[in-house]
Nucleic acid binder design. Structure first.
Length: 424
RNA sequence: GGAGAGGUGGCCGAGAGGUCGAAGGCGCACGCCUGCUAAGCGUGUGUAGGGCUAAAACUCUACCGAGGGUUCGAAUCCCUCCCUCUCCGCCA
């Protein structure tokens, strides 16, 4: 959510900035129109209320017959108030729903662009490996090794579900534990285990609603929503709180399952485990003072890269252009790892500086010093990393001619094996 | 799920229809005093949205779990819901 005052005072600039992320100037005008209506109504309503309490306060001091006259007067005031207040509530609702639909302002350092083709590759780290044989995709390797079972996943839960088994399940669990260990012990994050089902207002706070309702699993009976990312509960951890400046920055890391309906991606990436309805992810999250968020974004990217690098994977860092930025982020980097079997760069992390967009929606503030006005914090998130695609990259990168897969050095204490071999 | 108790400012805690944004205390901030990381004294200390301002000051409105209702007037009375605690039941 944007600052309404900013929209009022720097209208043309806001329109210009939002046009970069595909938001029409008319949407800004619509917000301003509601805002003007709201303020006009509010002034009327408040003047009436002030008059009403003024008279009410003097009633007990009057004689009986004067009291009756005044009571009648206030009754009349009250009935006009009722209708004006209803109108005001209506306008406020309109204003809020329009305001919630405006995307975040892009950071000045974000390159202009229309879509993902205009994203910029910032750096590529590590060499895509070469093989003396034709590397196989993970959807062949997994079943051959007896570690991924597609058919039974579909039998149990339908398409886009799969089962990890034996060393596959163990490898994923090892990855999760190792990543959490690195982030908590070396990168300074505090581990969180959050709920996977959250209330509707959490989705609004994180910016998933009202825009992206299609992609979220929803339990209608209790109005609980399955999280598509740990970013959602983490954003809401400090909702409606005023933090002390000394608490910032806060750094959290959470491992969760994530659930996505993938309605928008029907037919895309249906092969393998690249895009399932349920997947696991380790997510980093930071809350900072506004002036610290730019540096914090670079830090989150560095923390995510550290994981990819220590796993020995070839990866690249991509700076997302304005047209591909989405509604919430002011600036975003993706990290993509090379998967030699399926021959593509896979997005394993998306790191965003959301500036005050989520903080405003979620009402997360901090106070620089006692007596000072509270200010909105900046929030940042980044995957560190997404499990299925890291599994893909590992299996495909470390496959051997004999069909076995080498376990990367850093994971061996966690997997308790240095190689995964096909069943005999 | 059943029975009971309760939800008030950063925290504790009064208030039980009429200047109550809310006593008192703790905490915090500033000042004074005191030569010795103690004590004392004084002052201040919620949030949001309007109006007026260059900005303040100032002023208005709302908020005592949430939403309705009664009333000239509700933190105070009534209804519904949510949450917490205790006991019982059930359960990984």
């Amino acid at each position: 959510m944007l600052d309404l005052r900013l929209i009022r005072e720097r209208t043309e600039w806001v329109k210009q900035e939002l046009s970069k992320v595909g938001c029409l100037p008319e949407e800004v005008d619509a917000v301003l129109a509601e805002d003007a209506r709201r303020r006009a109504l509010l002034q009327k309503v408040e003047a009436l209320r002030a008059r009403r309490s003024e008279i009410s306060r003097m009633i007990p001091k009057l004689g009986p017959e004067d009291q009756e006259i005044r009571k009648e007067e206030v009754r009349n005031l009250g009935s006009t108030l009722v209708s004006l207040e209803a109108e005001l509530a209506q306008v406020e609702k309109q204003l809020e729903s329009k305001l919630l639909l405006l995307p975040n302002l892009p950071d000045p350092s974000v390159p202009l662009g229309r879509d993902e083709r205009d994203n910029q590759i910032i750096r590529t780290v590590g060499e895509p490996p070469h093989y003396s044989f034709q590397p196989r995709p993970h959807w062949e390797l997994g079943p051959a090794l007896g570690i991924i079972d597609f058919e039974r996943g579909v039998k149990i839960a339908g398409s886009r579900f799969y089962i990890l088994q034996g060393w596959g399940a163990r490898l994923q669990r090892a990855l999760i534990t190792w990543m959490l260990d690195v982030h908590t012990k070396e990168h300074g994050y505090t581990e969180i285990y959050p709920p996977y089902l959250v209330k509707r207002e959490c989705l609004v706070g994180a910016g998933q609603l009202p825009r992206f309702a299609d992609n979220i699993y929803h339990d209608a009976e209790d109005d609980l929503w399955l999280i598509g990312t740990a970013e959602i509960p983490l954003t809401n951890l400090h909702r409606d709180e005023i933090l002390e400046a000394s608490q910032l920055p806060l750094s959290y890391v959470a491992y969760t399952a994530c659930f996505r309906r993938e309605k928008m991606s029907a037919g895309r990436d249906v092969r393998g485990i690249k895009r399932g309805h349920q997947f696991d992810k380790v997510e980093m999250y930071k809350l900072t003072a506004p002036e610290d968020s730019s540096a914090a974004l670079e830090q989150i990217v560095a923390d995510a890269e550290d994981i990819a690098r220590r796993l020995g994977l070839a990866y690249r860092v991509v700076l997302i252009c304005t047209g591909d930025l989405g509604a919430v982020a002011a600036k975003k980097y993706d990290i993509e790892v090379w998967a030699p079997g399926c021959g593509e760069w896979l997005e394993v992390s998306s790191c965003s500086n959301c500036t005050d967009y989520q903080a405003r929606r979620s009402n997360i503030r901090f106070r620089r010093a006692s007596g000072r006005k509270p200010e909105f914090v900046h929030t940042l998130n980044g995957s560190g990393l997404a499990l299925p695609r890291i599994m893909i990259a590992l299996l495909e990168t470390y496959q051997q001619a004999d069909g076995s897969v080498i376990v990367p050095e850093v994971l061996r204490p966690y997997v308790d094996a240095d190689r995964i071999v096909p069943p005999t």
